[in-house]
Simulated scan of single mutants.
Amino acid sequence: MTKLAQDGPPLARRGLMMTGLITGLTLATTRVEAQVIHTDTAGLEAGEARVPVVDGELPAYFARPQGNGPFPIVLVNAEIFGVHEHIKDICRRLAKAGYLAVAPEVYARLADLSKMTDAAVIMRDVISKAPDATLMADLDATLRWATAHGGDSGRVGVTGFCRGGRATWLYAAHNPTLKAAVAWYGQVGGARTEIQPKTVTDIADRISCPLLALYGGKDTSIPVADVQAAVARARAAGRTVDLVIYPDSGHAFLADYRPSYRATDAADGWQRMLAWFRGHGVG
């Protein structure tokens, strides 16, 4: 490891295309047969939730320690494959560490991701049609839900993976009340469109909280040089960003349901994330 210094129709009119969360592992990518890590609910409250948004409700999954709280909040941004069992498990892992973690199904307006099996189709027909402005509003709504259900609005962090890593960068520039962010292999470039007008690199100089960026040196979809450029832009503006490159890992090295999983780097990144949150007031 090397450490380098147009919204669709409203929900109320369409109805949710997804009535619940994804209960199994997605088939949208090659995967191993089972997850490596399974986190139980002992000592936790966990399950599905409905997050009120401007045009209806979004399904979500949450986990938190038992008790009244208030608990520090971590918003969890899923991969393009939605809130499947791996993302739920991440919420439970965070809850075991003392957090109220909640992962909203932000693409539920557009599709039921549990029934989609082709990553290219998901990107074309779902992800590319989701406005960034709506994504930010949905995360704001999720934070309000968390605050109303035992979370501490003064101790809020955000994390995310792959496309959710991109959302993490964007939300760090959107919400000035955040204390810390951790982006796992989130895209920093890509096409600009009318509904997704900015890349991570475009907004890197506007993040409002310290951000930890965890990337794989062998990630062919996200060149290290591009990540370094985004980090340099943030630092030039006086923002706090810590970049860690794992030279032997590719994309999705935390995803323990996929062949891309790298246990040693995943464990190191997880501990760095927890330390980052604790060190910046989320804990």
Rank of each mutant, 00 (worst) to 15 (best):
R124F: 00
D140R: 13
Y215Q: 05
A133F: 01
G154P: 03
K179A: 09
R144C: 11
P197G: 07
G154M: 04
G217K: 01
D152I: 02
R166M: 11
Q196Y: 05
G154D: 13
T193R: 04
V126T: 01
S221F: 00
D226M: 11
D152V: 05
E194C: 01
T201D: 09
M123N: 07
I195Q: 02
K129T: 07
H174D: 12
F161Q: 01
Q196K: 03
A172L: 11
D140F: 07
G216H: 04
M123L: 10
H149T: 04
V182M: 06
R206Q: 15
A130G: 00
A148H: 11
D140L: 11
I127K: 05
A173H: 05
L170H: 15
A225F: 08
H174M: 04
T168G: 09
L214K: 00
A148G: 14
A180I: 06
R163G: 06
A172D: 12
V200T: 15
G157L: 08
L211E: 10
N175D: 15
L139H: 11
R144K: 15
R163A: 06
V231H: 08
Y171P: 04
V126S: 06
F161N: 02
A120L: 10
A141C: 08
T168W: 13
T177N: 09
A137Q: 04
D205R: 06
D205I: 07
D152T: 03
L170F: 12
L143K: 13
V227D: 12
Y185L: 01
S153R: 10
D132M: 10
C209D: 13
S128K: 03
V227F: 13
D226Y: 06
L143E: 13
